[in-house]
Design a protein around this nucleic acid. Structure first.
Length: 907
DNA sequence: CCCCAAATTATTTTT
DNA sequence: TAATTTGGGG
């Protein structure tokens, strides 16, 4: 959050506010940590007693309030660090708070054990009382992958068709239930019947039972179990009530029902309990602060049912996770839940220009369900740029034009790090990536596949889990036959049955099984080795450094070897990742603590020092800010997304609008909106109309740009000028020879060749050393080459007026001009000449397709076309085609088949 | 166990 | 369209 300018001295304040602001711990002077706060922030910080809701708009210094509030509580001696419960949603937010509190109060943060995410605090509580829900305190935390495999087993065990009832679907369903705090007994009958031939409830129950057997908990359980413990054991609850004097919650608008219930248990003391907690003097501090602050700020508190000092900070306008179970309602009804709550609005924005705020504010005002805030700024500079709206013909052009704008800003000395492209859906990223690769523009994709989610990391983790937790069957299953040890289906099934019959974990069962002769000698020996390995490794757990142990395990198990022998393109990257894994373990003092970290954090952090444009979804942009923000794809159907509209109705639309609001408010100086008239969706070209959100922007803060004007050398044109005529030209002058379909056909027939393929591409090769630079899939290089080639072919054309010139931006944004271009819905759009094809050059010159020949050294076949051959299964036939060692043979009886050279004999 | 062809399915994602 | 998952066959 912006730490920017301090508030002006307390002018324009009421006397009481000033008096309040001046009230410090000693007499008179406020402590310096309060000095930079504006009056509202200060109110939010100093209203320590009683329930407080801080409605913090985007860029109003929310994090600052939260951290200062904690610092204030500590500095005034109202509580010990261990008596403050502070919850955030993400690890990142928790980390940031920790550092910032550290800066404010020094080392005391080390003693803030209860600052963390909902889940990490849930784990903490659960570990203390695990036995109350049938777990041991060293339970494992399952990731989604484990979960799905487990569910699949259960579905199969129930003799259900796992095609018809996919495990993933059920996992999502169950996730939804858990988000709502529903245990198997409590799920609605309808939900229960909707899955697995009406056996949803049984399945859920079976799943929970299995988790207990496995001594495991999934993410949902990290909240649900504590809820159960706290509501069933009043003494434990009372204990936590006594412990937590102050509760703070970040991003309250994102809490789901389960989190809400959890919080309410901790925050709302029943009246009966209040009498049993007289003044809390047992804790060694008095509830009344040394400076004599009254327990509750007088003008605000009304005296209600709760006594805990809970402070929730959030912004209803930024609630964008409804689809994940978040309930905006939680924040909307805060005052009902906590009667007499003080509500502080932070509306003074330190981030964006007045134009950006004006645009965002006008847009979000179209929502009905909101508490209502209007952001304002004191900065105003006539130089400030308005929010721009630009049209492009299609997404490719959009990417091209954005790329050019970025390069132009860069030439003016702007840092790429200060720019971001925020998209609605991740498929939009690709076009930008491709474009930037051809430009050699550094970019960084935020989000996407995470370090700990990678295959090799999960495998490695499974080994480590088995060592720490011999009962972790899921982990064991994952790696018994990885690397391949000849333990196939048959052997594993036998092991399973054996284990189930005895009711013991797989590893233990394996140890026993190998002493019998139930397995064939080969698998038996293999399994015996696995068992011996694990026994040995477990023994060394206490004697060896965990990093050394991990290295040894990966080595001795043959896992590293497996990748070393793998000749595929991704193998080196995977090995690198494994090294990185071991390296990152170094920061943790033991294997179990590392395992827990991985389960909860799921991501490795990496410093990113490169200057690069960020590309990410709007969702992952929440909480960030950039000097310049590009918001492409503002079209109906994409944004607002059709699916949100279909499934969410009005509230779905409102959530989309909040997303738009989030997007706009990420920008500090410049926000640039784009929409295209044609977009390819699932391979079909669709005409699109501009997003309704564009119409919800106030004219006075928005400039409508004719795309090419700013850099095409054609001079700026006013809004609406020439729009229709250029559009006409565009619509009717293009020949069908320029349709992508036609060009594709040309390319496929092998017409053109690439000449410039040696552009510099700069990106991190394998993504191993930074979660931010997207992991390069093995195919990525060839994809890049493909586009470099394409650019080469078009290089000459680039300087010409692009089709962008004719983008058909016809004055009124809403006019569905593109829908009436006189072509069928699914026909590819016609582009003006000049992009990849040049009419002057007399024809399309687009090159697509793989440039890099798949030049695998092909083995010569000993057969030739026309040879007569014999095949064991298909009988006699004539060779029709020879491709390396693969033959296409016309068999006399069996028809044409492709067979491997080695499977036939000459006749 | 590996390879290929057919089928499937295409928001947003943290913990 | 294109990426991914699955099932059959070698």
């Amino acid at each position: 959050m912006s730490d920017s300018p301090n508030s002006p001295p307390a002018k324009g304040l009421s006397i009481s506010q000033r008096a309040m602001a001046a009230r410090g711990p000693a007499a008179g002077a406020a402590p310096d940590y309060l000095a930079g706060l504006n009056p509202e922030q200060r109110l939010a910080v100093e209203t320590t007693e009683g329930p407080v809701l801080v409605l913090a708009g985007a860029g109003t210094g929310k994090t600052r309030v939260l951290t200062t509030r904690i610092a204030h509580i500590l500095a005034t001696g109202r509580a010990y660090p261990s008596q403050i419960l502070a919850v955030t949603f993400t690890n990142k937010a928790a980390r940031e708070m920790k550092t910032r509190i550290g800066l404010l109060v020094g080392e005391a943060v080390e003693g803030m054990p209860w600052l963390g995410t909902f889940h990490s605090i849930g784990v903490k509580i659960l570990r203390r009382h695990a036995e109350l829900v049938g777990l041991k305190s060293n339970f494992t935390i399952l990731d989604t992958d484990d979960q799905i495999r487990l569910i699949k087993q259960l579905i199969q065990a129930e003799n259900l068709d796992d095609k018809r009832w996919p495990a993933r679907t059920f996992a999502n369903l169950m996730d939804g239930w858990k988000n709502k705090g529903l245990t198997p007994e409590k799920i609605p009958e309808g939900d229960a019947r909707a899955f697995a031939n009406g056996r949803g409830r049984e399945l859920y129950r079976a799943y929970q039972d299995r988790l207990v057997q496995l001594n495991a908990a999934d993410f949902g359980d990290l909240l649900l179990h504590p809820i159960r413990i706290l509501s069933e054991h009043k003494d434990i609850l009372a204990d936590y009530h006594r412990r937590f004097r102050y509760i703070l919650v970040d991003e309250y608008q994102d809490t789901n029902v389960a989190q809400y219930l959890w919080l309410r248990l901790l925050a709302q003391r029943p009246k009966t309990e209040r009498s049993t907690l007289p003044g809390d003097t047992t804790q060694g501090r008095t509830a009344v602060a040394p400076d004599g602050t009254p327990p509750r700020s007088e003008p605000l508190g009304g005296g209600g049912g709760s006594e805990v000092n809970v402070c929730c900070v959030g912004d209803d306008d930024q609630s964008i996770y409804g689809w994940r179970g978040a309930e905006v309602d939680n924040i909307l009804r805060f005052e009902k839940d906590f009667p007499g709550a003080a509500v502080v609005r932070l509306e003074r924005n330190y981030r964006s220009t007045a134009h950006i705020l004006g645009a965002a504010g006008h847009l979000i005002a179209h929502n009905e369900d909101r508490l209502g805030k209007t952001l304002f700024t004191e900065k105003s500079d006539p130089e400030d740029e308005k929010v721009t709206v630009t049209a492009a013909w299609d997404s490719e052009e959009e990417a091209r034009a954005v790329g050019e704008e970025i390069e132009q800003l860069q030439r003016k000395g702007h840092l790429l790090n200060d720019m971001a492209i925020l998209v609605r859906a991740s498929f939009q990223m690709r076009e930008f990536e491709d474009r930037f690769v051809t430009l050699g523009l550094n970019y960084r994709v935020i989000g996407g596949p995470r370090f700990y989610e990678r295959l090799e990391i999960r495998d490695a983790m499974a080994y480590l889990r088995c060592i720490c937790q011999p009962a972790d069957d899921l982990a064991f299953e994952r790696i018994v036959n990885t690397p391949k040890r000849g333990l196939g289906d048959a052997a594993i099934r036998l092991l399973h049955d054996f284990a189930r019959a005895r009711g013991i974990p797989l590893l233990a069962a394996a140890a026993e099984l190998v002493t019998t002769d139930e397995l064939k000698p080969k698998p038996r020996a293999a399994l015996a080795e696995v068992v011996a390995n694990f026994t040995r490794w477990s023994d060394q757990l206490s004697t060896m450094r965990h990093t050394d142990l991990a290295e040894m395990v990966l080595d001795e198990s043959g896992y590293t070897g497996m990748w070393q022998n793998d000749r595929s393109a991704e193998a080196p990257g995977r090995l690198e990742n494994l090294k990185e894994l071991v390296r990152s373990m170094d920061e943790y003092e033991s294997l179990p603590s590392f395992l827990e970290h991985v389960a909860l954090v799921m991501d490795a952090e990496h410093a990113e020092e490169l200057d690069a444009v960020s590309i990410m979804t709007l969702h992952s942009a929440k909480g960030l800010e950039f000097e310049t923000v590009f918001l492409p794809g503002w079209e109906e159907g994409l944004f607002p997304h059709q699916r949100s509209l279909d499934e969410g109705g009005r509230s779905g639309l409102e959530e989309e609008r909040r997303l738009a609001y989030v997007g706009l408010t990420r920008g500090k100086k410049r926000v640039k909106l784009w929409f295209v008239s044609n977009r390819r969706i699932h391979g079909l070209w669709q005409s699109t109309i501009p997003s309704r959100f564009l119409d919800e922007l106030p004219e006075e803060h928005v400039d409508v740009i004719e795309a090419s004007s700013s850099y095409g050398g054609y001079g700026a044109r006013g809004f609406g000028d020439y729009g229709a005529s250029r559009w006409d030209q565009n619509a009717f002058s293009a020949s069908s020879y320029q349709t992508p379909g036609w060009r594709r056909a040309q390319a496929a027939s092998g017409g053109a060749h690439a000449s410039h393929k040696d552009r510099t591409v700069s990106y991190d090769e394998n993504g191993a050393t930074g979660q931010n630079l997207r992991a390069r899939r093995p195919d990525a290089a060839s994809r890049a080459d493909r586009y470099i080639a394409r650019d080469g072919g078009a290089a000459g054309a680039e300087r010409e007026p692009t089709a962008f010139d004719r983008s058909g931006f016809a004055g009124r944004l809403t006019e569905p001009f593109s829908a009436s271009h006189g072509r069928g819905r699914n026909e590819p759009p016609r582009k003006g000449a000049g992009l990849y094809s040049s009419a002057r050059n007399g024809g399309p010159r687009e090159i697509s397709g793989e440039l890099v020949a798949k030049s695998v050294a092909v083995e010569e076949s000993r057969f030739g076309v026309g040879d007569r051959v014999f095949h064991l299964k298909f009988g006699n036939g004539t060779v029709a085609v020879v491709e390396g060692n693969k033959l296409t043979v016309d068999f006399d009886k069996a028809g044409q088949k492709r067979v491997l050279d080695g499977f036939v004999d000459a006749i």
